[in-house]
């Protein structure tokens, strides 16, 4: 198996997912299959290949540094699950 149960739980915790026992087993199988599939690349000699981060052969385009306000704060705040005045209201994060 390409991935351990602990690794599945670790990744789930990082993604804030609470998985049932049955889901852990199923995801372990599925992720394991995906990893096994990708592992086929290990059979290739890539020593001379420059690592590729993107499939497109060009640089990122730029924008000029000019301000153009979106102008609809209400539309942005309408996505807030909860709001207080013009703030997004979120569950308190305990710093210490």
């Amino acid at each position: 198996m390409a991935i351990t149960r602990e690794e599945v739980l670790h990744v789930a915790r990082l993604a804030r997912l609470a998985l049932s026992e049955e889901e852990v087993d199923r995801l372990r199988d599925q992720i394991g299959n995906i990893l096994d599939y990708i592992r086929q690349l290990d059979t290739l000699d890539t020593r001379e290949v420059v690592p590729t981060s993107h499939a497109v052969e060009m640089g990122t385009p730029f924008r000029d540094d000019s301000v153009c306000p979106f102008g609809d704060k209400e539309a942005i705040l309408s996505n807030a699950p909860d709001r207080f005045e013009d703030f997004f209201r979120v569950p308190r994060i305990l710093e210490d």
């Binding site: 909860d82 207080f84 703030f87 997004f88 209201r89 979120v90 308190r92």
Partner: peptide
């Protein structure tokens, strides 16, 4: 006992 934080983006 404050229950919420306010986010300014």
């Amino acid at each position: 006992g404050a229950q919420a934080s306010l986010a300014d983006l």
